[in-house]
Simulated scan of single mutants.
Amino acid sequence: MPEPDPFWWRDEAPARPRKVEGGIQINSTRGPVARTWWSQRFLGVLERLGVGGRLSRGRSYARAGQIVSLDVAAGGALAQVQGSRPQPYKVRIGIPAFGKAEWTWVTQALAGEASYAAALLNGEMPREIETVFDGVGLSLFPADQRDLAMDCSCPDYAVPCKHLAAVFYVLAERFDADPFQILALRGRDRDTLLEELRARRAAAAPPDENGGVAALADVMDVFWTGDTGLAERLSGAHTPPDAILDQVPDFAITVRGEHLTELLRPAYRALAGED
């Protein structure tokens, strides 16, 4: 009688996933996926939360275009990922969205620093933006595992499964192209945030001669011009331009019988436009 196979319980070799026509895939064919600091930070946070060790399982799915659809909105991302079964698996990644009051704090802090607003208006994520969120008691990226919900309809017990992992890779590459999708997860879309920033920056601008807020285009000719009376108020009494020569010790050298300081005096006056 033959000996029973000690590995009779082992699973069959996994079936290959069904090919998707026109699926969503990452552009990176090798090496790191994230190119910008904010996408690298996103994947780094996943590593810290213990998720990153399993991300590599989904890299081939992400590169093969197995993601059928992906929608990013306030509170998370929903996707369909094609596996070996006929129906795509439903994937959900949840990140809590901030409320109106919380976004008011964030927007006010961002608008208070011109460089932050300028970077966002230019489609970039300021490096200090995490500090801004921290300053109002919030976190831009998931702070702990309670800040990150993951669910997939596949039978794999591992979290994240390769379908969830594939979506994380596509999200990271999308964040490279559009950092506002990170903010959208937390509850603010691009247009709403930029409109609020513009409104707050305009409200903080100096008033025009009629008491209203002057548009930047209307004050560009004097934007870098200081108060015309400031120099006079700071300088006090008029000081002759050649007064400094009176503080210079006498030189032993003379030129045609004239002291050197006296020869220089007309030049100092000429430079000041007094001669």
Rank of each mutant, 00 (worst) to 15 (best):
G53K: 11
S60C: 01
L78D: 13
G76Y: 11
V68T: 14
Y89H: 15
L55W: 12
Q66H: 07
D71V: 14
G83D: 06
V45C: 00
Q82M: 04
A77G: 00
S84T: 02
Y89R: 12
Y89D: 14
S84M: 01
L43Y: 03
Q87Y: 08
A77K: 03
R85Q: 15
R57D: 13
R57P: 04
V81W: 03
Q80F: 00
I67V: 11
G76D: 11
I67N: 03
Y89F: 13
S60D: 08
S84H: 06
Q66V: 00
R59E: 15
Q82E: 03
G75Q: 08
Q66R: 11
L70R: 15
G75P: 01
R85N: 14
Q66N: 05
G50L: 09
R57Y: 07
A79R: 07
R63Q: 15
L49I: 04
A79M: 06
L55Y: 13
R54I: 02
G44L: 09
V68L: 12
L55S: 13
Q82I: 01
V72F: 00
S60M: 04
A77S: 07
Y61N: 02
V68A: 06
G75F: 03
V72M: 03
G58L: 02
G65P: 09
A64H: 06
Q66P: 00
R85T: 15
G50P: 04
E47W: 07
R85G: 09
Y89K: 11
A74N: 00
S56Y: 11
G53F: 09
G75E: 06
P88T: 00
V72H: 02
Q66L: 10
Q87P: 00
G75L: 07
G52F: 13
G50R: 08
P88A: 00
L49D: 05
